[in-house]
Amino acid sequence: MDIQLKRGLLEMGVLAAIKRKDSYGYQIIKDLRPYVTISESTLYPILRRLETADCLTVYNIEHNGRLRKYYRIMPEGVQRLKKFEEEWKQVMAIYDFIRKEEQEDE
């Protein structure tokens, strides 16, 4: 898959994973696992970018005598998810058209 596209999709996946409830790194990876495999090394720059873009904010919670970072979605992040859903409808419409044309070719 195109790297830029995949990056954008993973960003949306991460935002969706923290939307309902604040979450932490490993939990995000586990939540996404049934749908897409994302490694720790891939997740890190995504979280950083989303933080820089004010899509999420980070805070620490003590857990078993160590600190764990939790990520909370910000209004900008919610906005981006909404925009993504809108745009994706167009993508799906084009996808349906492509499928239809291909089926007619067969």
Binding site: G25, Y26, E40, R66
Partner: peptide, 16 residues
């Protein structure tokens, strides 16, 4: 910050 991230990830997996 980067090292703390990887430390947390490894520790979370070990806890799992």
């Amino acid at each position: 910050e980067s090292l703390a991230y990887y430390r947390e990830m490894i520790e979370d997996r070990m806890e799992d």
